[in-house]
Design a protein around this nucleic acid. Structure first.
Lengths: 142, 142
DNA sequence: GCACATCATCTACGCCTGCATACGAGTTCG
DNA sequence: CGAACTCGTATGCAGGCGTAGATGATGTGC
């Protein structure tokens, strides 16, 4: 007496997300990273970010909340944070070689897990799913 | 000097989810529903659930946290909650006609929004994406 | 030069969550 | 009958998160 249509997109993706996060948190912990630490490291590895405010917006985090994350990453020698000589209000953010290595190692392991999950799909759907996910995550909307 | 591989699945889906939720919350509010209220209503509409504990597990919520949600839904006449004559410890949960109508109306509007988003994809990818999302959200996985 | 804007930081509030505990009513098993 | 268990409920604690000032250092436009 129901169940005719499809489930809501948000419901399907929400469940998926929950499981992905549960599976990935221990992997990050192995590398001494928190979820936010990993996100920050990834953002800095994928392209330089000038200011902390820009970083916060880029990763969809609160600008006051990432300060602690940055402190920890810096203490651990994974990122650099130096005042910009051109504008001494801002802190120039960068990733160190150690940070890059940590990020890539963690990412390799995470994506390996993800591939195991995606391996349950037919090859064509697997490719289409990744392509669609990438497109939708970057799409302008509404 | 980066950006060669694909982004993490969780990162892509996470961003997508955030935007879906932001877009859907106002729609639910229009129908006098909270996010959890909608989830509960959907679960009860898609199939009867005997106990509150079973419902909590089904929707991935805390069993003590849904009580308030159930109270509200009941006060609003959207669900029924009666003691089971067979086992007077449990409350039999059911959805009322009003509740069913509210759920379906909200869902129609939500899925219409989702379709607008999905409309940006090529038709083939759109179908594959939905098929894959459904499969993955139900897949068994470590 | 001065008013105004920007950046990083700190503090604090309120909300939501997960987790644990406790309790009473009711059921099941020995 | 009595012990152990289940179910719904209430409550409290810790942690995460978004938001909103306030502050001090610094740039920018008029």
């Amino acid at each position: 007496m129901a169940e005719q249509g499809r489930p809501d997109l948000a419901a399907m993706l929400g469940g998926l997300m929950r499981r992905l996060m549960n599976a990935e948190t221990p992997v990050l912990a192995e590398h001494g990273l928190t979820m936010w630490g990993y996100v920050v490291l990834s953002a800095l590895d994928d392209g330089p970010v000038r200011t902390q405010a820009a970083l916060a917006k880029a990763i969809g985090a609160d600008k006051t909340r990432i300060i602690g994350t940055l402190d920890t990453l810096q203490e651990d020698g994974l990122i650099t944070r130096e005042p910009d000589p051109k504008d001494r209000r801002v802190r120039l953010l960068g990733i160190t070689d150690t940070g890059r290595a940590a990020r890539r190692s963690a990412q390799a392991q995470i994506q390996e897990q993800e591939e195991r999950l995606l391996g349950q799909l037919p090859a064509a759907d697997r490719k289409a799913f990744l392509r669609a996910a990438l497109a939708l995550s970057e799409a302008r909307w509404p």
